[in-house]
């Protein structure tokens, strides 16, 4: 048995589900961000695996470059929001962020 496309898809599924669990369960906002990073990495792994094992050539890797760039943007903006949340609430518990409405 050689390592094929299926193996990479399964690893990506595990990473995606772990990221999903972190997004659902974490109450610390930075923990939620870590979950988002895991989900994005799972998507990246799928793109690279398909670009190697399917006939689409190298274009999947270009998608991954754009995803990494958007992840960097997302983390910068999200951390700015988290720091604002901390300045206003004194904590970064996402359950208490509903108070921002008032």
């Amino acid at each position: 048995m050689t390592v094929g496309l299926i193996h990479y898809l399964i690893v990506a599924a595990i990473l995606f589900v772990l990221g999903l669990i972190a997004i659902i369960s974490r109450r610390n906002a930075v923990g939620v961000l870590i979950g988002v990073e895991l989900v994005l990495n799972a998507a990246n792994l799928n793109f690279v695996a398909f670009s190697r094992y399917a006939e689409r050539g190298i274009e999947g890797q270009i998608f991954v470059i754009f995803i990494i760039l958007l992840a960097a943007c997302e983390v910068a903006v999200a951390l700015a929001i988290v720091i604002n949340l901390f300045a206003n609430l004194g904590a970064i518990d996402v359950d208490r962020a509903g108070r921002m409405k008032r």
């Binding site: 906002a29 930075v30 961000l33 870590i34 990073e37 960097a72 983390v75 910068a76 951390l79 720091i83």
Partner: peptide, 15 residues
């Protein structure tokens, strides 16, 4: 880059 940014976020949000 991104991981260092996350660590900064953690360190800046705890008293």
């Amino acid at each position: 880059g991104i991981l260092v940014l996350l660590l900064f976020g953690i360190l800046l949000t705890h008293r």
